[in-house]
Design a protein around this nucleic acid. Sequence first.
DNA 1: AGACATAGA
Length: 690
Amino acid sequence: MSRFWKPGTEKPVLVDDEEGGVLFYSSLSSSSGYGHASIEKQRQRLPVYKYRTSILYLVENHATTVIVGETGSGKTTQIPQYLKEAGWAEGGRMIACTQPRRLAVQSVASRVSEEMGVKLGEEVGYTIRFEDITNADVTRIKFLTDGVLLREMMDDPLLSKYSVIMVDEAHERSLSTDILLGLLKKIQRRRPELRLVISSATIEAKSMASFFNNSRKRQEEELGPSKEPAILSVEGRGFNVQTFYAEEPVPDYIRAAVSTVSSIHDEEPVGDILVFLTGQDDIEAAIQMLTEDTEVTRKPGLFVLPLYSGLPRADQDLVFSPTPRGKRKVIISTNIAETSLTLEGVVYVVDCGFSKQRFYNPMTDIENLVVAPISKASARQRAGRAGRVRPGKCYRLYTEEYFLNEMSAHGIPEMQRSNLVSCVIQLKALGIDNILGFDWPASPSPEALIRALEVLYSLGVIDDDAKLTSPAGFQVAEIPLDPMISKMILASSDYGCSEEVITIAAVLSIQSIWFSVRGSQKELDEAKLRFAAAEGDHVTFLNVNKGFIESGKSSNWCHKNHVNYQAMKKVQEIRQQLRRIAQRLGIALKSCEGDTRAVRKAITAGFFANACRLEAFSHNGLYKTIRSSQEVYIHPSSVLFRVNPKWVIFHSIVSTDRQYMRNVISIDPSWLTEAAPHFYQHQQLKSRAQ
DNA sequence: AGACATAGA
C-alpha cells in the first residue's frame, strides 16, 4: 500500500483515481480530517452518487450492467458499497470487484475500508498473489486481481460465493480480463441470480453490452432479470485539456519531444511536464539531449527524471517527490504512466504517438516487441493525464489528420497478440472442451489456438481428444506458471532436482536478477563471470542464488555482485509459493547436490521444443531451431555467448536486428528423444546431425 | 559484439 511512501514524511492517503492508476495525496491536504461525517460528505460529492438509485435498479433488473465511468467518477470505490448497502452481501454472500493491477486492488480496498470505518481484512478485504487480506467469515466486499479470480474458479467453477461480480477497467482488454469475461458469460447461464457489473470506457461499452446480450425473443415470458445488458454513463471530474497537434509529421519524435519540452518551459506558466516515449533507450537519449542542450540547461529550474518499469525503485520514487518551489519537473516515461500510476502536478503532456507492443506470430511461435502507433483511446488517456489538478495542455507529435484518419479507435486486445498456452490450459482445467468454439470477447486467431494446443499436446498435458491428461495435465494447470515451466517442475521430481528447478522457475518468472546501470555494463559482465557456469544461464542462476543464501540474504552482497536485491527477495517469495504447491501435488522436494545433468534434463523435459543446433560451418554463432529451422543467435547477455555449444535449449527469443536466444543451456541431443520421443523422432535428429 | 513496453498467477 505504501509503495511510494517516503519514510520520514507523513503517511500519504491513497485514493483510487478511476483509471487503475493511483493518486497520492498528502494527508495534510485534507485538513478536514477523516471523521465519519466528512467522509460521508465526500462520498456524496462524487458524480456517481447521483446515479446510486439508478445503478441499484439496473443491477436488480438486469443480469449485466455496463457502467461507463470517466476519470474521477467514483465508480470503483462507491458501487461496491452501494451494492452492499442494498443488501447484495447478505446471507453470507460476497461482492467481488476485480482490477487488472495489484497496486490498484490494494489502494482501492484500503480506501473503501476507510470510508466504511472498518478494519481492512474484515468486512472489506483484498486478495492478490502472495497476499490474502480477507476473512472468509466476515468479508463482504472483496477486491482482487482478475488473475486471482480466474484461479479461484479452479476450486469453485461457478464462483458461487459471489452475488455480484464487478469487472473494472474492462476496456483495457488485458488477457486475464478477457478470459474472465468469457467465463462469466458462461457462468451466467448456470447462475441466473448472479449479477455482473462491467465497467468500461465509452469506446468499448457497446461491444461489451452486445457480448453479454443473452436475450432471446419472448424474453418477457422468462422469469428473473432481463438478459439484455443495461448501459449507464457517469460523467467524470477531470479538467479540460487543450490539444495541440504537430503541423507537419515529425521525422524524429525524440528530438521533437525535447524541443517541445524546451518551448513549454519557455512559454508556459508553472506546471510539470509528462513526456511519453516508447522505451528505456528513447528515454535515455531524450534525457541526454535535454541535459546537453545548453539552451535548456542555462535556464534554471528544469528537473528531468526518467520513469520506466526496469528503473530501480529508489529512482522511480523520485518522480513522486514534490516539485520544489519555482522548479518544473519533467518526467520522461514509458506507457507505465498511461494507466499504471498517476503523477500529481502534471499540467503538460507530450505524446510521441507510439508505444512498444507485443506481437505474437503463431507460425514461428515467436513473440516480438515492436514500436507501433498507439490507438485513439490511448492518445486520449495520455492527454487526460494533463487535466488532473487544473486545466492542462497536450502536445501531440503527430498531425490532426493522422489522429483522425490513421489511428485505430482502440488497440488490439492482448488476447490477439499473445502466445496462448497458459490461457488454453486454464480453460481446459475449467472443463471448457471446445476451445475453438469458445465465446471470447475478442476471438484469437485459430492459428494461435491450434499452436497452443500442439504445444500442450507435445508436453503430454492434453491427450488425443484434447482433454487434460491425468495426473500430469491437472498438475501443470495447478501451477501458476507457463505450462513449459510447470512441466519442467513436474519432471524435476523424476530427476531428483526439484529444489534446484524450482529456483530456476522462480528466477525465470521475474524480469532480471541483475542490477544494470547505464555505463556500468562492463562491471556487470565481470560480475556475471564470477557465477558463470559452463552449462549455461540456468545453472548460473543456481550459483547466484546459492551465493545469496550463503551471504545471509545480504543486500550488501547483492550490491557488490551487481545482483538486484529486490529481485532476489522476490525469487525467494516465489520459491516458497512453488514449494508449497509442489508439496500439495506430491512432488518430492529434493536437491540433486550439484548434478547439473539432472537439472538440464528436467529443463529439457519442458523446453525440448526450443532446441537448437549450431550450424556446421558457422563462424558467427549461427544456430537453427530444430522445430522450424529458424535462424537464431545466442544473446550477448548469456554466459554462453561466444561459447557456442553444439546443442542448446533456450528459454525465450527477443528479436532486434537478429533473433536472439535469452537464457540458454547446453544439452546432449539424446535427451531430446528421451524427453519427447513423439516430437523428435530419431530419424529426424540423425539426419540433421550429419 | 550487444539489449530489456506493461501487467498478472
